[in-house]
Design a protein around this nucleic acid. Structure first.
Lengths: 195, 195
DNA sequence: TCAATTGTTGACCCATGGGTCAATTTAAAG
DNA sequence: CTTTAAATTGACCCATGGGTCAACAATTGA
């Protein structure tokens, strides 16, 4: 048996192709045909590996999320202090490869389906839970317990808001500006001695 | 001639119906047929008053935005101090009639189309510009000029992020929590004497 | 070498939905 | 009252795209 079965290779290729097509075409425009073509395959193959369109894009979302998670873990491993852990989480969310208008467009398209797609909602819940947990594990060492939840939500919301802005108004919001925003928030919200 | 022409009445009815259908069905599911039925008319009439689907939803977005704008103006008129003006803008964005998961779903669906729909992008630009201008007109009296732009962007992003959260995880985020978040931000970001 | 499994394709089906149009009803104007 | 214009309908057209399927190719394992 091969180390990685063809089926796994194909599924990954198709997930990725789906996410990439999503970036430019949106959910309605991301045809099975287009995804297949973009992956260099035929439409039939897509439905051979995924039961239907929803499942395909569910896996596309999973993969995109997994790659963000990786980036966070990677940076968290390097972090030594609680503050560094906080910065690690934030900076991972604004890495150049992620913080791109097209990537944001794809996420927006997926988010717009969340209300009607329980599977996507589930993934979204997981994403939020992990974010919260990561933030809390750092914040509890920096802030009084009573404030941690609030600040965690604020940080998440700020990140999401900046992402949204990037998606809606690509011009005029750079990665550096976004990071500056986050830093500004931390400087004013965390205890003076910390930063 | 009647005070309000039938054409204007119909157009408003259809815009509203479009927005309401959007709340539950999303952009793909918001069929011309469904919009027409929801407005108590036939599909033909929709295309009689709007050139095509895009135009219909463009006007739906315009109307939803106009109603938010009204709420802001309303509250701004009551505000006396710069800080009150700031609070007016924020509170308008979280009025009960707006800050609802279903309303947020509709906005999400529209936002997801922005990248591929220049008309929607234009409206979005206007929304952001007005928000920025409103915030700056209050902030300039509270903060040093060099900080106003940054704080305006932060406030906008926070609001958008909280809205997004409401859309993605309806349970677990109340209006009061959202407002508390905004207050918490202001308390820590504005000069001590202000709040 | 030869089943048996897996991968792959393209043709086909069919529901859906955007958009057109001619025909009819309703209302306005003179 | 009649003519002109606006409002409204429902039938129709047709491209699109999700999903099925039978047949074919390739790979694998005995």
């Amino acid at each position: 048996m091969r180390l990685t079965k063809i089926s796994e290779i194909r599924r990954r290729e198709l997930r990725r192709a789906a996410f990439e097509v999503l970036q430019k075409e949106g959910m309605a425009g991301a045809t099975l045909e287009k995804v297949a073509t973009h992956a260099g395959a035929s439409k039939g193959i897509v439905l051979h590996y995924f039961a239907n369109k929803q499942e395909l894009f569910e896996h596309a979302m999973r993969e995109a999320n997994a790659s963000l998670k990786e980036a966070v873990v990677e940076r968290l491993n390097r972090a030594r202090t609680p503050l560094e852990r906080l910065e690690a989480i934030i900076e991972a969310n604004f890495e150049e490869r992620f913080f791109q208008p097209s990537v944001c467009h794809a996420w927006l398209s997926l988010c717009a389906e969340v209300p009607r797609e329980p599977q996507l909602a589930r993934i979204q819940t997981i994403i939020h839970a992990r974010m919260r947990s990561n933030l809390l594990s750092a914040l509890t060492h920096i802030l009084p317990a009573s404030e941690c939840e609030d600040v965690a939500l604020a940080i998440t919301s700020l990140i999401d808001g900046l992402w949204l802005r990037l998606g809606l108004q690509s011009e005029g919001l750079t990665r550096d500006m976004a990071l500056a925003q986050m830093r500004d928030y931390l400087v004013h919200r965390l205890p003076k001695t910390q930063t």
